[in-house]
Amino acid sequence: MKFPKINFDNLKNEGTESVTAQERRKFLKLGLAVAGVYAGGKILSLTSIVGTAHASGGGVDFVKKYPYNPHYSMVIRQTLCIDCEKCVDACKSTNHVPDYGYRTRILTKRYAGTLDKQVEFIPVLCNHCNDAPCVRACPTRATYKDPITGIVRMESRKCIGCKTCMLACPYDARYFSPARRAVDKCDFCWEERLSKGKKQTGCSAACPTGARTFGNLTDPENIVYKLVHQLEEKVWVLRPADDTKPNIFYMKGNMRSVDNILRQHKLKYSEAEKS
């Protein structure tokens, strides 16, 4: 990986105060059961990972009903990502992603003045937004929200290639694939894995550290349910201001508290779960 120069002086330290009550409420209104504070894709505080625990925000509402069942979701424990890009490779081979495209990638965030680490890796993929701008923008309903699973999928034969969805997506999750003659995007591996009975996506199964955890948000026994329904660690989504109600959640994921929550879940998937 090449790291282009970046001007550290321009990076703003947001501090936890920057998470407004309004933002908190918005997150709780996602139609999802979510606990804790999130920091709009901005890092909460540059010092937050240096020893101190996160101050969890007040008013936590648990919404009992999810819009989909199974409600597929991914929780990314950012601190665990080591940028091995095994997920990217697995995604490419599972879903026949051409060289000029990608469905997921790893972003790099660098810090200065931190004691424990200077770099953090942020895996990004389609957020399978509950209020998906791409779905609204598509003139022919070639991209749609699966009414059962909530996965945002493509019906390739309807895609006229106007590329409006690519611009509508605030997460750069789409690209045009000439091989499919349609826009291609992450489908939570529905076509290649989930519909064939597998429980994990290509990327989450390939992840050696458990940074990517995939599962069903409506199942209290599921790892993503447990990771999202806890107070100790902050959970956030990317670009909350766009109000897309994403289904990819982010957290640091290195706190002991999480291990406690996950007593029954080892950090890494057992081989059986990987199938």
Binding site: P139, T140, R141, A142, I160, G161, C162
Partner: peptide, 17 residues
Amino acid sequence: DIENPFRMAIWNVFSPN
């Protein structure tokens, strides 16, 4: 610019959004 202009004529009518 449109990658599949011919599909447009069909799906604009049969699958309008």
